[in-house]
Design a protein around this nucleic acid. Structure first.
Lengths: 337, 337
DNA sequence: TTGTACGCGTTATCAT
DNA sequence: ATGATAACGCGTACAA
């Protein structure tokens, strides 16, 4: 079916070795034979078989970007940035979506290693930590957003200060006079989930409120999705005594919260204040612009790509961490009590 | 470095053939040897080399999804849907972003063919038509959104009726009394760009207006991006006599239009009416909900995935086309003159 | 039930 | 400057 290097060789009347030299331009071939080979390549429509090539060379030019939610613009913007940087180095980015399913994460990572990818940028589910720690010794790896704090892990991390960011958001509400402040958080087995909740708790402690498992205004959802935001908001709005403000710990869930409130004619910020950890795409066009803590996917993507490149150069180097400091952007979604 | 099938064989004290039989469970192996092999696999941490495997089997389980804009939720939602369908068949979706660059499109497609992908779902740049037509005879291919109307092309197409959709949008404006109607369109070498402009022209003809190259209210941008929407809007708002309404032919450009108008304190719909071809993510939260023609990425994704699956079964079958009929959703962005 | 041996398409080594 | 050939890791006849 597909033309192989042999077909080209036969067509050009040379050996496969020469063809190989030409298509990889290793040099040492007379210019007229180069031309003969090139013509033959065109003629038989030859495309080198990557499988076979990698089998020999023990390398691909593939970088895997494995993410938990391909519909979240936070990640797609990151993907854009990463791709543009890697492409300059002749590397090809491949995006894989785990949908936060640990099994899919394993699948994708297995495939990456099986393809002999040159590196991986991973937004992990945090459910395969041991396995990933082992993997990190075999392939250059950079984690984004969610960290793995295991001494065995070898690689870099780029994320944001979720503790400080959520603390700032919460303090902002406190300064506006709020006390009955709710939080919609998610999967606490992720580093981000824990950190952000801790930031909230720390801020609440300053006004003498303990946020524990029994804190009435706390909702721990399973995922970080819009649907989970809806569910969390529904729960909170169903309470006998409603909170006056909600802290939502990621952008997608905030959208869910906004939609629930809008669909149920609950006004922001008149009836309830809302703050979000992380930018929401196009939120400057929203009826009520959310107050949020900035998260910069371009920044994170750029750092991650560069860390990975330097790690590919020196795979054994020590772990590095880059933490983005979110800024508080105050908009219309919070009112003074 | 990496453990190979030989290491497993040595460790388990069997031949490589037996190991192969076990990991592919082809059967015909005593259960205790199966166990011995499995243990050895764990022990040496063996992952089969996909390159080598595919080199033998002449197949991968890879499906390429090559798109023009990974930041457009239209495509990421499609990706989610496609992935969930393909996964049931044990196929792995890989997403590649061309950013509407014909060279990147070639790169990605070359790599897909070189990886012996089992199929491709493509949102083409429409700049490599001849090459893609040839390619379509070598690998099962389904086009989404943008079509290639070349008799040589072998494959399926899933898209939407851009002609009718934009015509409906325009007629809606006409019925509201608008006459000075502008259009922001894009790259007319794409099938979608042409079609949608034609729909607009047809509607305008019903009120005796000719939309040609010199039609003052027409802006042809290069890409379909938000930035191009901004530029188009800026041009139109700079005209001596402004239009009273704008038809924008995709969702991203509409966002650009919205942002330009918002940033320049031009009110929608009081100062100008706007309609969009295609849904805008979260537009139900917008200050002014846009009137738009629906585009259903889930629908398109589902159809595309299923067409591809059936084409993989029978690669030579005749071309098929599925056209989604957009619905007009009237919201607040259009006012009666 | 298990093992031996060949070939997939490529690159790299060693001759020539 | 070019060619013959061994390897890469795997699956699979065929043999045992």
């Amino acid at each position: 079916m597909e033309a192989t290097i042999k077909d080209v060789a036969r067509q050009a009347g040379v050996s496969t070795a020469t063809v190989s030299r030409v298509i990889n331009n290793t040099g040492g071939v007379r210019s007229d034979t180069v031309k003969r080979v090139m013509d033959a390549v065109k003629y038989v429509n030859y495309v080198p078989n990557i499988m076979a090539r990698n089998l020999k060379t023990e390398s691909s030019t593939i970088i895997g970007f494995v993410i938990s939610n391909i519909s979240n613009t936070h990640f797609t913007k990151m993907a854009n940035k990463i791709e543009s940087i890697l492409r300059e180095q002749g590397l090809n980015l491949i995006v894989c979506n785990t949908a936060d399913d640990p099994n899919l994460e394993l699948d994708h990572l297995q495939r990456m290693i099986a393809m002999h990818a040159d590196g991986i940028i991973l937004n992990t589910t945090c459910k395969n930590n041991d396995w990933i720690c082992e993997l990190s010794h075999k392939i250059p790896m950079v984690l984004v957003d969610r960290n793995i704090t295991d001494p065995v892990f070898l690689g870099d991390f780029v994320g944001s200060n979720g503790y400080g960011g959520v603390m700032d958001l919460t303090k902002h509400l406190i300064e506006k006079g709020h006390r009955d402040i709710a939080i919609i958080t998610s999967d606490l087995s992720t580093s981000t989930g824990r950190e952000r909740l801790n930031g909230f708790s720390a801020a609440m402690r300053t006004i003498g409120i303990v946020v524990d498992d029994y804190y009435i205004y706390r909702y721990d959802s399973q995922h970080f999705s819009e649907e989970d935001g809806v569910a969390g908001c529904q729960y909170l709005m169903g309470l006998e005594k409603r909170p006056t403000a909600i802290v939502v710990i990621n952008n997608e869930m905030t959208i869910g919260v906004y939609k629930y409130l809008h669909n149920n004619d609950i006004s922001v910020p008149d009836d309830i204040s809302v703050v979000s950890y992380g930018n929401i795409n196009n939120s400057d066009l929203f009826r009520v612009e959310p107050t949020f803590a900035t998260l910069n996917p371009n920044f994170i993507g750029e750092k991650a790509a560069n860390l990975l490149l330097s790690r590919i150069e020196a795979p054994g180097r020590g772990n590095r961490e880059i933490i983005f400091e979110p800024l508080l952007v105050v908009n219309e979604s919070t009112k003074t009590l």
